[in-house]
Amino acid sequence: MKFRANQVHYHMMLLPGLLLLVVFSIIPMAGIVMAFQDFKIGLGIWRSPWIGLQNFKYLFELSDSRVIFYNTIFIAVFKIIGNLFVPLTFAILLNELRGRIFKRFVQTVVYLPHFLSWVILSGIIVEMTTTDGLVNQVVKAFGGEPIIFLASNQWFPFILISSDVWKEFGFGTIIYLAALTGINPALYEAAVIDGASRPQQIRYITLPLLVPTFILLATLSIGNVLNAGFDQVFNLYNPLVYESGDIIDTYVYRAGLINAQFGLATAVGLMKSVISFLLIIVSYTLASRFANYRIF
């Protein structure tokens, strides 16, 4: 690329953003060295003893590591799947609606939970799932025994996944709806003339034309395979469901902030970042190949 004098001001405009990135994202990366140290606050980064890969070794020896990684991936993968298919279905259904005002209304309402924090939502979920809560009222009405959902290892991941999908599907719906408006109406008109029913229109026009968007979203979400959602789990879990609900982020939180095991916490965090980084590269390559998505 050739340097052009008349572009200098564009580069100047980039500066503040770059500066923020350097100060808050790049410089702190130096802290990664803590993952290879027996970090002591009193000694600091400069004088804490180096212990090589011992933190990582310990991490793999932990009987818990398997559980934590399994939980993280299990929860994250099902959240990704849910967040791909539910909005897709919902967007198609919504698109079939005739009443414009009602459509907009529904669209806005399902979008709202996206803006609520898990601190608030978790309170609502806890209330709903207590033994006197709404859900258990229904269970009791059908003659079942009330279940403490949040203390049950069978139910806990399901609650995490379903509540996350419920919270986020409105957001995904908007992306699909945007893609739907981009479909040329002439295609539908032609199909109608050929005698296609509405299900057939969906099957042969809507779905195929949504595939690129779907692939794009799917590949981009691969980078999230290790993000099972700290806020949500942290606000909902308890020691009884560590077995099915403890994820990497909550573990790092407990190790690092509560027990001051900065070295170990950094090691776990670093490993997560490295894996996520690799996954992002993979997903970007896939996205550019299959969905023609390019950043540069």
Binding site: D38, K40, L240, Y251, R254, N259, Q261, L264
Partner: peptide
């Protein structure tokens, strides 16, 4: 205070303890 091994393994031990104790009582 904290010892060397504690600074590495305490979070895990504490987690194990909590999980087992909660499960004994309520699980």
């Amino acid at each position: 205070a904290t010892t060397k091994t504690m600074s590495q393994k305490w979070a895990n031990l504490l987690k194990m303890e909590k999980e087992v104790f909660f499960k004994i009582i309520a699980g």
